[in-house]
Design a protein around this nucleic acid. Structure first.
Lengths: 173, 173
DNA sequence: CCCAGCTAGTCGACAAATCAGCTAGGTGTG
DNA sequence: CACACCTAGCTGATTTGTCGACTAGCTGGG
């Protein structure tokens, strides 16, 4: 599954604990992938049992000890194989569009409310992404440029969503 | 869950069988929600057991008989309640962006290949959506305008994705 | 008449994701 | 020193979603 590969991707940058991974997901890639911590720990266990990662207990410096996970050669091979395989088709899932699709059940005021709710949520997302972009250092290597590109993707789609909302709100009588 | 509400939305337009629903998902809302047929049938059973829909066996005209599902008053109320409730936050899941994020593991040629694969997939999506838009009749009521708006949303995001890909492919050395 | 193909529905097994709760070490504050 | 809070990890239960196979009725073509 894809979560396994994403975790391998993070481990390829350096050894990490489950806790570290959870923070990575919540802070850096949340706009394109999120993960529950229970699942992160189980996926790490699966990676180890498949020989794609290794664990090492590291005594905690000022805190509990950590289970540090390190990618193995087999893990790197699996990561590379995923990166070069045919694109996984992830099903689109957009609950908001589903609401709009069936929104004729609502009064004009209720529709307006629905769209406004969405607009403020999207504006918040936009502000958050802009903050990430502005506080990120200028990329100095290809890896950094690629990561910045994914952020740019998020920004562009967020702006597209906002534009669409604006024109829909204006168009609707 | 959301699938239940979406199915209620379809049932609100008229009675449907599980088979009908599967075709609706595959043809009209696939670009923002997809569903496995096994799950559609199970969700229909759940709707009936919760009193949100009713079944009726209709002898098939030229074919096997159908289990026609009809929304109940309670079902309409549940649908309306969902449409006016706080926005469900669906986790973003974009496996392609995940690949780009970790793509530094790849050679320039492999990255180019990854982006090209995506570009042709996105172009195909764009063509498919444009076909849907061009073959759809002009909306004559608000319900039609809302459904057309969701299609427009898909088109805009698809174009945004294409633009982003174009600029990334150009930018990368 | 056989078979392919469409309509229609069901089941079991499994994988993935989510939710809630639990243990436990360490730090800093009132 | 009690308490809140952060780090760190784990488990059970449940829900959702996916895959594959299977039954069955009817139609049209070769």
């Amino acid at each position: 599954m894809i979560l396994q590969r994403i975790i391998l991707g993070f481990l390829a940058m350096g050894p990490l604990s489950g806790y570290d991974l959870k923070r990575h997901f919540d802070s850096t890639v949340d706009y394109f992938w999120s993960a529950d911590k229970a699942q992160i720990y189980r996926t790490l266990a699966a990676l180890v049992s498949e020989g794609l990662a290794e664990v090492r207990t590291v005594p905690g410096v000022g805190g509990p000890s950590r289970q540090e996970h390190r990618i193995t050669a087999a893990g790197r091979a699996a990561l590379h194989e995923w990166l070069t395989s045919d694109l996984d088709q992830t099903p689109e899932r957009n609950a908001f569009l589903a609401r709009v699709f069936f929104a004729d059940d609502l009064s004009p005021a209720e529709i307006a409310e629905l769209l406004e709710q969405r607009r403020s949520a999207v504006r918040a997302t936009l502000a958050a992404l802009e903050l990430v972009r502005d506080s990120a250092p200028a990329p100095h290597d290809r890896a950094g440029r690629l990561r910045l590109a994914t952020l740019d993707n998020g920004l562009r789609h967020t702006r597209t969503e906002l534009d669409w909302l604006d024109s829909l709100i204006e168009e609707l009588p």
